[in-house]
Design a binder for these strands. Structure first.
Length: 828
RNA sequence: GCGGGCGUGGCGGAAUUGGCAGACGCGCUGGACUUAGGAUCCAGUGGAUCUAUCCAUGCAGGUUCAAGUCCUGUCGCCCGCACCA
């Protein structure tokens, strides 16, 4: 055995060994419980960053731990390999997106192997490979056939820099999530997935995910945005058109003093036909549409509107109120029209005051009487109805129901539930993505590509243009085709799918990655699903995590999977910080995992990442901290080295026998060992507190040094301690554990060993320390036999000089004992 | 504004059920070994005062024999959502 810990030599050795022996190859095994441990697969940007290193270190500890605990562990890795950066690289560096992506995957795979992560590499998938995207296209067709994929004309988010449309989820603060450009609205015919069909279930089944962080569930809840209210039908007086509005406050219908339409509302043009205000309205609409999405949806934007000249009839009162167009009304929420109740809605109040519209109080607060003229704010809370005809005097909550019932009988109202969630826009005007398998026939219309013609191959020999326009539009061999139905000349869809489509089902493919006849076999997914532990960044809280949930539910309803949810438990890791802010290229504060691995070894990097903070919290990078982890591994190495040197017969020593016959010092170190086994097991399995698990192992090592230096040691005890120490370390620092395991005389992999089990017998103590308090303040401590009766402990303490002195002649009122811990003497 | 989270030594963090605040590590101080030490080992390390005690978990109250932990109020920071009718 080398005296020095040579991380580079032994890590290379074990990584090669694991690869040769396919050490982490896994297949279904009904004899064992299964465990599916998944880290979010990366976009192949080229290099692992510290966030990746953290993500995969966390996953690897769990996977290796679960293997040792006897689970059949699926731990796969792949590549989210379609997407814009590859195309941008193609335009800028004249390298093909495929070559760029492939080279990046090669490099990152090498880096992952250099971290010693326990992946079953035989299951590797890349979403850009035809044998993968073939099935992405197949899923599209299943959704299409079942009415869950459709094309519609709509005002969509357009990123001018990326030259493509974006989903609502990809627009952040009015800007493109990827490049930061201001997103504009465009009317385009686009493909959507009908995620809104699952809005209620996506909301409800969050309740069945106790293993998800509250924060993520709340974010999804907000995004789905369920609201209960009613649709009320007004009538445009001048044209006779019905104008339904959605409101959560039908109880305020008597207080409506105006109505506002969205700028794009289809009725706008009709109601201004004969209006003297027509030109003014048209200009207003043009100005609104010029605004960026950010300005339109910002709460700070001044609410503006213009009178159309037309009026609406209130279904409750029969009164006519003016019809306006406003910049703050959204076309695609509710009905694109809002009733204005200035007395009871803050926004309406501001709007009415600005334009001199009347305010009518219809809800009176308890014990007060509001007057329109002197109100400074809208009254939005509950109260009693007023100025509301036959409903006067009724509490407004009850009024909501009664008004809807009343108008419903006239066919002018119905209860409605509205969601903020919109359908998922999945088409992208980009090249590097899975082609949408549809053909447009001049006679038959849009036709799905027959399944036996999949995949619709993405041609590789295309020409990239600096305009950013998809090269597929200039590649006749791709878009010129024939109609699958009538055989006539037809044009192939040149849009590709959002990469989030590809990543919405990869966890299913991992269960059956080489299936050539199906996306995945039902038996395989039935065995492996759900993912037991999913680990990744919180930035996917809405996008990926909701799309994947939708996919699983849709595929379940189509009979392809048996589960309701993809991810049973979710761990959202914290960010890696440098000097308090997130490591990022733009800030120039990144540290490359590979550089640190070269210097200290993968085990050190993993150990530091796991030790420096709990996984869900942000982690401050510290190279001094890394050195601390490196020192620890050296200490670990030396304790084994020195022990073997001191006692060459260590490897042959018999295991520890009867505990009660051992001397005190040996029982103490074994107590420490078993306490550590218990602590590490609990921390990893139940709490994901890897940082305290590591610190417990460090304490054990410290104790072993003390034991070694305390005099003559027993080989059997030393051996027991060292072997268990190595086993405990194995999931965290797998290479050094493997090496030390062979040094202990084993020829098998430490990762195939069973996880240590603590013995209650070893944890039993003959003596325990009890502290005593006076009025809750610590005043002393005392070692007593653990079997001593509690009243005897109390008496012993009361008889101590130290205690008498602390009591100081005061009267003992009562004594509170926590057995095995403390005695509190209450005096006055 | 709404929602989620956080606030403990010089720093990262521990304290799992209300029961010894500061585990473990970093850093720092002193010492040993040494030609040397940025290796290793030993000792110390919240503050004030030094046998003992007092103060201390953002701040102010409260409950309790006992509070970092529970309750009320308050301040600060981070993250997410935000004209959703």
């Amino acid at each position: 055995m080398e005296e020095r810990y040579q991380h580079d030599v032994l890590e290379a050795k074990w990584q090669a060994r694991w690869e040769e022996t396919e050490a982490f190859r896994i297949t279904e095994d009904t004899q064992k419980p299964k465990y599916y441990c998944l880290e979010m697969f990366p976009y192949p940007s080229g290099h692992l960053h510290m966030g990746h290193a953290r993500n995969y270190s966390i996953g690897d500890v769990l996977a290796r731990f679960k293997i040792m605990r006897g689970w059949n562990v699926l731990h796969p890795m792949g590549w989210d390999a379609f997407g814009l950066p590859a195309e941008n690289a193609a335009i800028q560096n004249a390298v093909h997106p495929y070559a760029w992506t492939r080279d990046n995957m090669d490099n990152m795979r090498r880096q992952l192997k250099g971290m010693g992560i326990s992946y079953d590499w035989r299951r590797e998938v890349a979403t850009c490979q035809p044998d993968y995207y073939r099935w992405t296209q197949w899923i599209f067709l299943q959704l299409y056939k079942n009415g869950l994929a459709y094309k519609k004309l709509g005002y969509v988010n357009w990123c001018p820099d990326c030259a493509t449309v974006l989903a609502n989820e990809q627009v952040v603060d009015g800007a493109c999530e990827r490049c930061g450009s201001i997103v504009v609205k465009k009317a385009l015919d686009q493909w959507y997935f009908k995620i809104t069909d699952y809005a209620q279930e996506l909301l409800d089944s969050l309740g069945g995910l106790p293993g998800w962080p509250e924060k993520v569930k709340v974010m999804q809840e907000n995004w789905i945005g369920r609201s209960e209210g009613a649709q009320l039908v007004f009538e445009v007086a001048e044209t006779g058109d019905a104008l339904p509005v959605y409101t959560t406050r039908p109880d305020t219908i008597f207080g409506v003093t105006y109505m506002v339409l969205a700028a794009e509302h289809p009725l706008v043009e009709k109601v201004i036909q004969h209006s003297p205000h027509a030109d003014q309205v048209r200009e207003f609409v043009r100005n609104v549409q010029k605004l960026s999405d950010m300005d339109r949806t910002s709460a700070e934007t001044e609410k503006e509107g213009v009178f159309t000249g037309a009026h609406v009839r209130n279904p409750a009162t029969g009164e006519l109120t003016p019809l306006w167009v406003g910049n703050y009304v959204l076309l695609d929420y509710g009905t694109g029209a809002v009733m204005g109740v200035p007395a009871h809605d803050e926004r309406d109040f501001v709007f009415a005051r600005k334009y001199g519209l009347p305010i009518k109080v219809v809800i009176q607060p308890p014990g007060l009487h509001l007057h329109e003229a002197i109100m400074e704010n809208a009254y939005v809370d509950d109260g009693v109805m007023d100025n509301s005809g036959q409903f006067n005097g009724i509490p407004n909550e009850e009024g909501k129901k009664r008004i809807v019932d009343w108008l419903e009988q006239k066919g002018l109202a119905e209860n409605r539930i509205n969601f903020r969630l919109r359908d998922w826009l999945i088409s992208r005007q980009r090249y590097w993505g899975a082609p949408i398998p549809v053909v447009y026939c001049p006679d038959c219309g849009p036709q799905p590509v027959p399944e036996d013609q999949l995949p619709v191959m993405l041609p590789l020999d295309v020409e990239f243009r600096p305009t950013g326009e998809s090269p597929l539009n200039h590649y006749p061999a791709f878009y010129e085709t024939t109609c699958p139905r009538c055989g006539a000349k037809a044009r192939r869809e040149t849009d590709t799918m959002d990469t989030f489509v590809c990543s919405s089902w990869y966890f299913l493919r991992f269960a059956d990655p080489h299936n050539e006849t199906e996306a995945f076999g039902r038996a395989r997914t039935d065995y492996w699903m759900n993912v037991d532990q999913y680990i990744g960044g919180v930035e996917h809280a809405i996008l990926h995590l909701m799309y994947a949930r939708f996919f699983v539910k849709a595929l379940r309803d189509l009979g392809y999977v048996g589960c309701d949810e993809p991810f049973q438990n979710l761990l959202t890791q914290g960010m890696v910080l440098m000097h308090g802010s997130k490591m990022s290229k733009s800030k120039g504060n990144t540290v490359s995992p590979e550089d640190i691995i070269n210097k200290y070894g993968a085990d050190t990097v993993r150990l530091f990442i796991l030790f420096a903070a709990p996984p869900d919290r942000d982690l401050e990078w510290s190279e001094q901290g890394v050195e601390g982890s490196y020192r620890f591994l050296n200490r670990l190495w030396r304790i084994v080295y020195l022990s073997l040197q001191n006692c060459p017969s260590l490897k042959e020593a018999a295991p520890v026998g009867n505990l009660s016959e051992l001397p005190r010092r040996e029982r103490d170190i074994l107590y420490m060992l078993h306490k550590t086994i218990k602590k590490v097991t609990d921390d990893v399995e139940n709490r994901f507190n890897f940082n305290t698990a590591v610190s417990a192992i460090m304490e054990l090592v410290n104790a072993l040094y003390q034991y070694k230096d305390s005099g003559e040691t027993m080989p059997s005890v030393t051996r027991t301690c060292l072997e268990n120490l190595i086993l405990l370390t194995a999931p965290f620092a797998p290479h050094i554990a493997e090496e030390l395991w062979t040094e202990m005389g084993y020829e098998t992999s430490v990762h195939r060993e069973s996880w240590p089990v603590w013995q209650e017998e070893a944890l039993a103590r003959e003596e325990i320390e009890v502290v005593f308090q006076i009025n809750g303040k610590l005043r002393g401590r005392l070692t007593v036999p653990s079997l001593m009766e509690q009243n005897e402990v109390e008496e012993t303490i009361l008889s101590m000089d130290r205690a008498k002195e602390a009591i100081g002649g005061r009267q003992v009122v009562k004594i509170i004992s926590v057995p095995g811990k403390l005695v509190n003497i209450v005096v006055k």
